[in-house]
Write a protein that binds this DNA or RNA. Structure first.
Lengths: 197, 197
DNA sequence: CGCTTATTCGGATCAGCGATCCACATAAAC
DNA sequence: GTTTATGTGGATCGCTGATCCGAATAAGCG
């Protein structure tokens, strides 16, 4: 890559980081290009899609989260490791308003630039979940995909200005649902008469 | 209102209903106008914003949901009433892909055309919740706003193609969190050492 | 019925978006 | 210093919702 191209790329990433922190991931790409004193076409050549830009921008964060999962796996109890990692994930998304929707779309879109990162994240969560389940600390009827979905839903809550104030509390509510049902009587109560067809 | 205006309004509502069912609430207003053989300006005069259009279109559904809440309040046990009403709410949103985001925004935006409907819905849920709490069937540390947020989050899950397959299962998980903590030991387990500041 | 008036309509236009094209500028290689 | 491969960004496209205003028309009245 040519030196000037590299410089533009790096500068664009820096500016994009600022813009996204300020305005969320839906910020206009034109705005980012303007703030970087660069043509829109240049931004779009370096990062052909919004997902590609985010992938470059967030890769470090993704890596940190997966590393943190590995670390917690050896340093904490299965229960604490799972819950505090989930908490970290949700807390992280608050720095990038709107990223949850893109991640939810990317997790099953193999063409998305964010796909690989999302899959890796889900796998990291699945490991912690399996460990907690093996220890009897987490309900056994959920898997990594369920966990990903729950974290996404909680992160989405935090993205909605009107619901965000409850996000922390509802995290605890959902966390209790993941943890507490392990072998409890609820597994039986849970079987309700009949779902509305 | 002049006869031709009324006709256009009704026709637009019918066409909008079809279009939104097919493509979700983010369908282009221009498309709706085109399909109704009407100018875009005409659509926007009858319904100045997307929210206004949805409000007119969904008012019936909103009324049905609140009526159903009242009905369940007298016909079912506090627990069943709450859970099956929540299930109805989530199921209803699946007919209008994307409506959840607009409702979350509208619940605290008094200017939104959807505001009143959302507030009414939250109140209906709050009544069922309070009743279940009084009967000791629902955890007491949540309120109507929390309930609204949880339903919104579950509905949002159903809107995401990649997460939708788990939505039903995760509804049960969340429902168990709402119900099962009533006086159980979990209330105590729940107090975790310390949330990350 | 014909005239007037208030209402409604929709084509045209605007600013915004992301995507794409291509003449031009320039770093790098020789 | 010249050549060449690479990078750039203004211009343009099709799309979005919002707005304006001359033309069309329904309703009211003599």
């Amino acid at each position: 890559m040519r030196a000037d191209a590299r410089k533009n790329r790096d500068h664009l990433l820096a500016v994009a980081g600022t813009a996204i922190t300020e305005q969320g991931v839906d910020v206009s790409l034109r705005d980012i290009a303007r703030r970087a004193d660069v043509g829109l076409a240049t931004l779009l050549r370096h990062f052909p899609t919004r997902e590609a830009l985010l992938d470059a921008l967030l890769r470090t964060s993704f890596d940190e989260l997966t590393a943190r999962a590995a670390e917690l796996e050896t340093s904490s109890s299965p229960e604490d490791a799972l819950v505090s990692w989930l908490r970290d994930c949700v807390a992280w998304t608050t720095e990038y308003r709107g990223v949850t929707v893109l991640m939810a779309a990317a997790i099953e879109d193999t063409e998305s630039a964010l796909h690989a990162s999302c899959v890796t994240l889900r796998a990291a969560g699945a490991r912690l979940l399996t460990r907690a389940q093996a220890a009897g600390m987490a309900r056994s009827d959920i898997d990594g995909t369920d966990l990903f979905a729950l974290v996404a839903a909680l992160a989405w809550l935090g993205d909605q200005p009107s619901l965000a104030p409850r996000a922390d509390h509802l995290f605890d509510v959902v966390a209790s649902a993941i943890l507490t049902s392990a072998g409890s009587s609820h597994a039986k109560r849970e079987r309700r008469p009949r779902a509305r067809s």
